[in-house]
Computed example of a mutant assay.
Amino acid sequence: MAETELLLDTPLDRLHRSLGARMVPFAGYAMPVQYPTGILAEHLHTRSAAALFDVSHMGQAELVGEGAAAALERLTPADVQGLKPGRQRYGLLTTESGGIFDDFMVANLGDRLFLVVNASRKQEDFARIEAALPAGVRLQPLPDRALLALQGPAAAAVLAPLAPALAALSFMGVAQAEIAGVPVLASRSGYTGEDGWEISAPAEAAETLAKALLALPGVQPAGLGARDSLRLEAGLCLYGSDIDETTSPVEAALTWTLGKRRRMEWNFPGAERVREELANGPARLRVGLRPEGRQPARGHTAIHAPGGAAVGEITSGGFGPSLNGPMAMGYVARPFAADATPLELLVRGKPLPARVSPLPFIPHRYAR
């Protein structure tokens, strides 16, 4: 059987194809990488107006029962118990050795927690969470829900007339509402560095919802290609590339995800390694890199000290359309992690000059 025959479809598959999307395999799904306008145009449109992304391949679930927040804290250094109703938080699932098992979003819906995890890890994540749950707390995966992301500086203006309750949210706020007659659960968040919403809806109503959003003034569809260049410009990690079970929250420059209370308790998986690295510094750090010239350096490119030995490796790299130049993220030995440090990237056997650059490459424009 061909690989394409084994791929799962999202509820918007028919719509993507009718819009002329180029479909590619991603995390076990057939996903739109781009539409006829192309990745560059989709990226720039998201930065200047508003774009709609299908992220229904992500894993959605609810954690229900007395003590659900405390139960989830057995697996993450995030402060879940301190999360107020109607608020969402980014967190990490950590391993016993201090690596990152996955990153996730958790929202407090008052009577339950709502989780969004990565498509490539959802089965492993759900199994890991279920195994840690005490009696009375249960995980309810939601495979019958779609997830759409409306992103861009014009998103608020076009969504407000349809869903004023969602437009009233601040960054990382969560609310239930209706859009075009479809009941949704939406958070003011995203993966582009822009203002916007991630909108969970019943799978059977996903196409109705997507068409209503695409009919709004200036909203255009965008695929995985633009999503990747947007998140890299925003300095956001991709699981499996920039973070994985070999990277710690400290190395990954994600120490802000560690709750203050959790840093006093040290009762999460991998706490020993995290504590040691916070005290003494990690051996390596995730940094931004700006190659000189126009040539991008891709993932797995070796990073060298000028004229010297290898000091690290690129994990994500490409061309930044809004940056109008190449950009990359990767890990370097700590002595080489300071901003503006000169380095060389070994591209096709030739050293390409680069410098360590502050992240994000393009400033975030969240609705604070």
Rank of each mutant, 00 (worst) to 15 (best):
E3Y: 15
L12Y: 15
L12M: 15
D13I: 09
L15N: 08
R22P: 06
R22D: 14
R22E: 15
G28N: 06
G28E: 02
M31Y: 06
Q34A: 13
Q34P: 02
Q34H: 12
T37V: 09
H43N: 10
H45E: 12
H45A: 14
T46C: 10
R47L: 11
A49C: 02
A50Q: 10
A51M: 00
L52Q: 09
F53H: 13
D54C: 14
S56W: 01
M58L: 15
A69G: 13
A71H: 09
R74K: 06
D79V: 13
G82A: 08
K84A: 12
K84I: 06
P85C: 03
G86C: 07
Q88H: 04
S97R: 06
G98H: 14
D102P: 06
D103Q: 02
R112S: 01
L113P: 15
R121L: 10
Q123T: 02
Q123E: 04
A127H: 14
E130D: 07
E130R: 12
L133A: 02
V137I: 07
R138P: 00
Q140S: 00
P143H: 01
D144N: 04
D144P: 01
R145C: 01
L148D: 06
A149I: 03
Q151W: 07
A156D: 13
L159W: 09
A160H: 04
L162Y: 02
S170T: 15
F171K: 12
V174M: 11
A180C: 04
G181T: 11
V182P: 14
Y191E: 00
Y191V: 00
Y191K: 00
G193L: 00
G193R: 00
D195F: 01
S200V: 11
A201D: 11
P202T: 01
A203G: 05
E207Q: 15
L209D: 08
A210K: 00
K211C: 01
L213M: 13
L214T: 12
A215I: 07
P217T: 03
G218W: 05
G225F: 03
A226E: 10
D228M: 08
E233I: 07
G235W: 01
L236Y: 14
L236I: 14
G240Q: 12
S241K: 13
S241V: 05
D244R: 03
T246D: 12
V250M: 02
E251M: 10
L254E: 13
T257A: 09
R263D: 00
N267V: 11
G270Q: 04
A271N: 05
E272D: 11
R273T: 11
V274E: 06
V274G: 10
A279T: 12
R284A: 04
G288A: 01
R290N: 11
R290D: 11
R298F: 05
R298S: 07
T301D: 13
A305T: 15
G307P: 02
G308K: 13
A309I: 15
A310E: 14
G312Y: 07
G312C: 07
G318D: 06
G320S: 15
L323T: 12
M329W: 03
A333Y: 02
A333L: 08
A333W: 03
R334L: 02
F336C: 03
A338E: 11
P342Y: 02
P342H: 02
L343V: 01
V347N: 08
K350V: 13
P351A: 10
P351Y: 12
I362P: 14
P363Y: 08
Y366I: 01
A367E: 14
R368T: 06
R368W: 08
